[in-house]
Amino acid sequence: MAATGQLKPNQFLLEVAGMPGGERITACIQCGTCSGSCPTSYRMDYTPRKLLTMVRAGLKERVLQSEAIWLCASCYSCSVRCPRGVVITDLMYALKNLAIQQGFVPKKAVAYNFYSSFNRVVEDVGRLNERRLITRFALKTDPAKLIKFAPLGLKLLVRGRLAVFPPSLKNKKEFKRMIARGKGGGGK
């Protein structure tokens, strides 16, 4: 007898299902609760429901190049409502990880650069420094952002809401060594 509705595993599906949080992807019944619960799906090129089925269809390039994965705000509405226990938010993280690792993200992509700027600052001193984050993010994407952020920065400054001393751990060197040992291959 011919295969009856059995999904034929493809390489991409196996890759995604092998990431932490990706295991349940084959349990999806395409009910669309995720897309209906998502506060940003109205702006996505592919809604979460579509992305899930595209992964299962092996449409790697289209999934990893999609803008949708960068519109996920991590609100977990989809995840708590999914009747099949798929943690879609974690799947979105897995897709972002893969898109970065495998070079599907354009160099000046805004969301990617925000996250990577955040991470590079944290890796450097152990804590987030808001001023360094904004500066790095602007220089990586569009330096005009520095001017755009200035009014907000000023408002925070006059209210004493910008750290006077840049935050840092006691032993930055040791921290950096630890990060270098433990991080994956994604960060640049």
């Binding site: 705000a73 991470n119 944290v122 987030l128 994956g184």
Partner: peptide, 24 residues
């Protein structure tokens, strides 16, 4: 000597980094 939790940024880029930051 606590460090940053990584927020959504670390998890988006590298799940190993995200886990390590919170675990430390």
């Amino acid at each position: 000597d606590w460090n940053c939790c990584g927020a959504t940024a670390a998890a988006s880029e590298d799940h190993r980094l995200a886990t390590l930051l919170a675990a430390r």
